[in-house]
Each structure stands twice: as structure tokens, then as C-alpha cells.
Amino acid sequence: MLELKDIYGGYGKITILNGTSFKIPRASITTVIGPNGAGKSTVFKAIFGLLNIHSGQILLEGTDVTGRTPKQMIDAGVTYVPQGRNVVPQLSVYHNLELGGITARDQRKLRDRIEQVMDQFPMLREFRNRKAVELSGGQQKQLEVARALLLDPKLMLVDEPSIGLSPNLVKDVFRTLQDLRDQGVTILMVEQNAKSALAVSDYGLVLELGQARMHDEAAKLLADPRVGHLFLGGHIDEEETA
């Protein structure tokens, strides 16, 4: 579904990704874990066209999408839910949703789609006329996820969905992502909260210093003592699995 081939890239002259390579299958959840500064969020920005890629290739369903703009990535069926709060504060919930489909050509279809998404997230229908800034943190995150669904993406990039949410809300968000996976959406997620994220994922990917160090089924990674070791500050210097 998505493949990164030996990506080098970063901000300005600073290189963050040092030959990142991995491949994820369709209709799966893959969680990227790794220490701070490993380049987890940077991988997402690279995929979504928000980063200078110096070399390497990104393939989406076999098509080379390296160096496309965010708009072109959206058109190709990719949506991105970044870390933190990402609503337009002074616009209503409904208009925030509508912005999620700003690139859609058929606006009538979009309106129907907004109704469907509000069926999926009844809270959004209830507060549709409220300003987004008046929602709680968890509600704003739901709005962001809902907004990313409007265009029926094939691939969703979700960065740290659990930050600032209560454990119950985190469960809700994870369950939503699993439902989406069951509907055929491919999800690539970054999570600080590695344990609970891997528990709901199909695959896990350990990123260190901008390179994929381990990539395996989530359950296997969860059981691997080296993963725990890595999060205590160690390095993986035994065999590299890609």
C-alpha cells in the first residue's frame, strides 16, 4: 500500500531521516514508536509533502508520490491528522468539517458525506453550530479524525492521537481507528503511548535516528524485551530487522 525507499530528508540543512525504509500493507494499523527525536512525526511530514526530501522514493499503491504537495496527496487519497490541536478555532464545527472536504469537486456529495460522518460521531451533530474552540480537547480530536474521514481516504496518517486525552477517550479514538481499518482504511500512527497503541495495532515499527530498526507484528514487538530496552534509552545494535 505504502512504501518508503531509503528516504533522506529534513528541515533546511538538518537531516532527520537517514535512509528510512518500510512497507505497510492495505487495511492495517501500523504504529511507529521510538525515542524522542527519532523522526516519527518527520516521517509523516515526508509522506504528506511537508518536508524537503533529499533522496529516496515514496510509493503509494505502486505510484511514485515523492515530492508531491499536501493538496496532491489529499487528491491521491491520503489525509493527515497532526499532533496537538488542529481545528480552526473561530469556525463552527460544521464549517470545520466542511474544510476537510475543501478540495472535493462535487460539493453536493460532500454535504451528504458530512451528514454520514456526523452520524458516525453524534457529538458533532449535537454541537454542529458551536465554535470549534468551545469543544473539549477530546471532542476536538474527534472532530479532527472525522474531518480526515470526509474524503474517504485510503491512507490516514495519525500523529499522537492520545496526547491530552483521558484514558477513556483514548480507547474511543483507538476503537474508531480499528473500525476504519475494518472498513479497509490503512492507518499509520505515531504514539508516545507505545504499549496501548501496539495493543490495537497489526504492526509495529521502531524508528531510531531516522531509520526503521525493527518492523514486525505488533504482538511480537510488545513481547520483545529489546523494545522495552529501547524506551529506557538503549540502542539496538544487534541484528537489524527491516
Partner: peptide, 14 residues
Amino acid sequence: QATAQNPDVAQILG
């Protein structure tokens, strides 16, 4: 308005 209030978000929405 989205561009003025939150340009990063506006950009990722296309």
C-alpha cells in the same frame, strides 16, 4: 479565515 486562524491546519486540509 482558516488561513488566518491556523495556517498549518489550512495547509494540511488542502
